[in-house]
């Protein structure tokens, strides 16, 4: 499974707004009103665990979570845990 496919599943499982929604790699999640800053804080932990990476809220901009595509590139560039 690609990072993007896995992200879509994780988002559906963790965000009520996306659970029964068809969305793809380019759907605008923040500007489309599906997720909020609070959600992102929770998602960071979920992504770290699922992909074994370290994401620091300090270095990330909220806009980087606007699409699955951009989250995927954040994850592929993040340092591996441990």
């Amino acid at each position: 499974m690609s990072i993007s496919e896995e992200l879509i599943i994780l988002l559906k499982n963790n965000i009520d707004e996306l659970e029964d929604t068809d969305f793809d790699e380019t759907t605008e999640l923040i500007s489309g009103g599906f997720i909020e800053s609070f959600d992102i804080i929770g998602l960071i932990g979920v992504f770290e665990e699922a992909f074994g990476v370290e994401l620091s809220l300090e270095d990330l901009k909220l806009e980087q979570f606007n699409t699955v595509q951009s989250i995927a590139s954040v994850i592929s560039e993040a340092p591996r845990k441990g």
């Binding site: 707004e17 929604t21 969305f23 759907t27 605008e28 500007s31 489309g32 009103g33 599906f34």
Partner: peptide, 10 residues
């Protein structure tokens, strides 16, 4: 521009 674009929660 964004309005013309796609689906939203709204």
């Amino acid at each position: 521009q964004t309005e013309a674009q796609q689906e939203t929660f709204e």
